Simulated scan of single mutants.
Amino acid sequence: MRIAVIDLGTNTFHLLIAEIKQKNFDVIYKTNVPVKLGEGKINENVIIPVAFERGLACLKNFADTMTEYQVDQVRATATSAVRSAQNGQDFVEAVREKTGIAIEIISGDDEAELIYQGVKLSGAIQNLSLIMDIGGGSVEFILCDNEKLIWKKSYNIGAARLAQQFFNSDPISDDDRNAILYHIQGELADLFEICERYQPQTLIGSAGAFETFAELIINKKNKQIDINKAETYVFNFDEYIEVAIRLLNLNHQERAAMPGMIPLRVDMIVMAALITNYVLGRTKINQLTLSTYDLKMGSLANFL
C-alpha cells in the first residue's frame, strides 16, 4: 500500500510518499516547497491572495505527483497558518475543489502529538527530553521520555509571526532582540514551570531550523555527514552556540552566503536561534539533538 502524507506548514508544504509493508515502510518520494502561506499578514490571521494562490498551485503539483506514484491513501494536515486564518476554511475548500485533496486542520495539541510520534520513531529520545518544533506560525514543546509523553503545548510564537512583528533591523538590533525575548518570556511561562519541575536533560530539535543549524556546522567543520540520510544528529553544544551567535550578528546577505543555508531560512533562522538560545538558557539544558523525523513521520507512524 502506498501512503502520501502532506504537511501544510506556515512556510513550507511537504509531501512524503511511502510504501507500507506490514509494520515497516520505505520512503519512495519526498519534497518540500517554500510556499510561505503566512506571508504578509499572519499576525492579522489572513492568508493573502498571492500566498493563497501559491498554496493552491503547490497542491495541484502534489496531486499530480501522487497520481504518478499511484498513491492509495492520503493524509493532509494543516497547522498554524490555516488554523488561525479567517479564510483558512476557504483555502481548504478551494484545495478540495481544485485538487481533490481533503485537508484536516489540526489543533496545536494534535500537532504536538504527531511531532512526538515522529521524533519517537527516529530514536532520538534517549532520556528525559524536551522536544521543540519551530514552525512559521507556532512552536510546539513536548516533555517526554522514551516510554511516554508527559506534557505538550503549542504556542503562537512561530518564526514568521515573530519576524513580521519584531524583525525591523538587519543584523538584528539589541532593541529588536529584547522585544522578542520579552514577548516569548511572557508566552512561555508555563513551559519553564514544567521544566523546573521535571528537569529535562536534552533538547531535541524537530527537523526544520535544527536541520539548518546542523548543516551550517557540518559545512563549517567539513564533517562527512549527510543530514538528508540521517535520522538523528547529536550537536556538539559549543559548536551550536558558536553558529547561533554568528547568525545573530550577520546581515541577510552574509547569512545567505553561509554554506548549508537554504533561501527559505535566511531570515527565519535568526528567530529560531533566538528562541532556541533563550529556551536552552532558561532550562539550563546543554545537550542538543536533532531529529530529522517530525510531524510528517508522526502522520506516517499512525498508518503503521
Rank of each mutant, 00 (worst) to 15 (best):
K284E: 13
A51W: 04
V50Y: 06
E113H: 12
D174I: 12
D145Q: 08
L248H: 09
K41Y: 13
L191V: 06
M1C: 07
V234R: 05
T289F: 04
K223I: 09
G260D: 00
Q164V: 00
Q22S: 12
A63Y: 06
V35T: 08
R161F: 13
I204M: 13
I142E: 03
A76L: 13
G205Y: 04
L300A: 07
E187Q: 14
Q117S: 11
I3W: 06
T31V: 04
G281Q: 15
T77N: 15
L16H: 01
V95M: 03
Y116E: 05
I103G: 02
T79V: 07
T276F: 06
L15T: 01
F235L: 07
I105Y: 09
Q89L: 11
L304N: 08
I241E: 10
D145G: 07
T99H: 01
A57H: 08
I150S: 06
D238P: 02
A81M: 12
R161H: 11
G208R: 12
T67H: 15
V139L: 05
G186N: 15
G40M: 09
V119F: 11
T10G: 02
D294T: 13
A159E: 03
L128R: 14
Q165D: 12
A57T: 10
R75L: 14
L121D: 11
T202A: 12
E242F: 06
A85D: 03
E53F: 03
N146V: 05
T10C: 04
T292Y: 01
D190E: 14
I42D: 02
I105A: 05
L181D: 12
T12R: 02
Q165P: 01
V234C: 02
G88T: 01
I262C: 00
R54I: 01
L188S: 06
N302S: 15
E193W: 08
N219W: 00
N127I: 01
I134V: 12
N249K: 10
A78C: 10
L128F: 07
A179N: 15
K41N: 13
R197H: 14
K152Y: 07
G38Q: 12
T232D: 02
A112P: 04
